[in-house]
Amino acid sequence: MQKSKVFIALIIVMLTGCSELSLKQQAAEELIFYTTGITLGHNQAQCDAIHGRCNRDGYSEWTTEDGVINCSCKKN
């Protein structure tokens, strides 16, 4: 359990530096999606990395109204 808390904190810190999302929103997303086995990406670089580690059936990608690419990967 301790390792998962450290992992979540590390992910939040890493995403804070390269995201337009607020820290509160990032923390909420990471907590919710980490516990459900879903990984989120909020830009092309993150989505490329996630796509490379995700199986084909679990990967989803979409573009927001302002043209930003987002994605998710559901671990099976």
Rank of each mutant, 00 (worst) to 15 (best):
S19K: 10
I8T: 11
A49Y: 07
G17L: 10
G37A: 07
L15G: 14
H51K: 15
N55H: 13
S4M: 12
A27R: 09
D66K: 15
V13Y: 05
L31K: 13
C54L: 05
G58K: 14
Q25N: 13
W62H: 06
E20F: 03
N43P: 10
H42K: 11
E61I: 11
G41Y: 04
Q2Y: 08
Q26H: 01
Q46P: 05
I38F: 02
G17W: 04
I50P: 12
F7C: 01
L15M: 13
M1E: 04
G58R: 14
I38C: 02
T35W: 02
I12C: 04
R53F: 03
V68M: 07
A49F: 04
H42I: 07
K24Y: 09
G17Q: 09
I12W: 03
S22G: 14
E61V: 12
D66C: 07
Q44M: 08
I69P: 00
V68S: 09
F33Y: 15
I32Y: 08
N76T: 00
G41P: 13
I8W: 00
N76M: 01
E30V: 15
L40Y: 01
S72I: 01
Q26W: 00
R53Q: 11
Y59I: 09
Y59F: 12
C54G: 03
L31S: 11
C47V: 03
E65S: 11
E65N: 05
S19A: 07
S4F: 07
I11K: 15
T16K: 09
T64K: 13
G58H: 14
C71E: 01
T16P: 00
G37M: 06
Q44Y: 03
K5Q: 14
H51Q: 10
S72K: 12
N70C: 01
Q26N: 05
F33S: 14
S72Q: 12
Y59Q: 06
